[in-house]
Design a binder for these strands. Structure first.
Lengths: 136, 136, 136, 136
DNA sequence: GTGGTCTAGACCACG
DNA sequence: GTGGTCTAGACCACA
């Protein structure tokens, strides 16, 4: 269980954020499909050897983003995309736009050529896609 | 002075980081050119209505990244790129790659079409470039 | 706790630098081993009768040099050497080379004989080694 | 005049200290010999394009260390070694010892092998000696 | 509990 | 006047 999820407590990014990112990545890559059941908070906490509050916080965040759905008494599942549009989409798009802007700036300061960075961008798409390649 | 720099004390990103990002952005956009003098630590602190230690921390971080240079007792200046290569380049490239991967994942969860996201990417490049358009 | 660390507020070298040097020395001498837990920022501050920000600055510097590792919410630990190579190695080697050159010059002006200085050099090695004598 | 002396205002080591180090190095290397006349404070200041107060401070420091001698109305000259022993020798020796100890620690953290560092030490001696090779 | 950030105000070395 | 350091005390995110 949860072999596709790794967490590094020494990373500067918070542990709960790593879980959020990891699950979002798994969904985007197609490793987790709508309707799939996620491990319970406590199970995942044990698997990752971390505090269960941390997992709970990650699940809350994921539910707010409509990535997962909690069915009371049954467990938590990967949500169907497009069912209920997530709140604060506008804010997240804005943040995403800003992330890309900062990425370009960082690329500039690292001396990356424009087309090299562009290639990195498309490489990242393939990484994120995972096994979902032919779908969209 | 420093009209191109704004800081939001309520933002979740630390104020000193906002200054770092802002100055990196100004350099990447060509608003600040190598050799240009930056406002003194205390002047900028007054302009931004923040504590001077916060500005000092930002300047130290920028110096570590080789974006600016401190000339003893004279002030701080925008560094010449490529003079001394910044440390951690490899690590920073790795982080940048990861940022792009996460951006693609976020775009997926926001329901953005691939070409729409690609356009956002290029839009971000133009935003970051600023007046540097014709140079490279 | 922290009996092996002393700080002199009247010294011309900054207090935070004394802490950095002291901990690097403790690691090099084998008094602190990889994985050992360091006192918390605030505890060490109390022990040394200084402000906690000063300790925090020292810890951050040590983390940048990859001497210690911060585990979120758990504390800071002595890092495993060679895990992630520290940044700036080349620059630091260059500085070290220069330090030795200046040391020879100083020895000359102090009228130290060459072999006396050489002995001082080896004495310094034994001092730095501490209890690490038999390992390498 | 003073072609053997270079000063970098962007260096973290104070300018006056760079002058002190440079002149001590020139003497130790034999480029400057006892009795040689040094440029006047103002001339050197012009040559190096720096403030003359900075040069004056360096000369004062050098005189205190008995490296140079100021003859009123005649100029400043390289002193005869061993004529008048400099004050605070003990303190300087202590500092030198500490410098070597810290150098060993730094070598350890840079992962330098012991004999590699030892070789660097002897290389530094040759660098410091300059043209004085056969004398002592 | 941990470290990270920020403020207000002070002192110092340097040029 | 420049940046660098330090203190005292506060608030916050994270685990």
């Amino acid at each position: 269980m949860a072999l596709w999820l790794r967490v590094d407590p020494r990373s500067p990014t918070p542990v709960y954020q790593q879980i959020v990112d990891g699950i979002k990545a798994a969904v985007a890559a197609g490793w987790l499909k709508p309707g799939d059941r996620l491990p319970s908070v406590r199970d995942l906490a044990v698997s990752l050897a971390i505090n269960h509050n941390t997992v709970a916080k990650a699940y809350q965040e994921l539910e707010r983003s409509r990535v997962i759905e909690v069915v009371r008494g049954r467990g938590t599942f990967v949500a169907n995309p497009g069912q209920r549009p997530p709140p604060n989409v506008e804010e997240r798009v804005h943040k995403l736009r800003d992330t890309l802007r900062l990425a370009w700036i960082e690329a500039y300061h690292l001396g990356l050529a424009e087309d090299a960075f562009e290639e990195m961008f498309h490489q990242a798409r393939d990484d994120a896609r995972g096994e979902r390649k032919e779908e969209t």
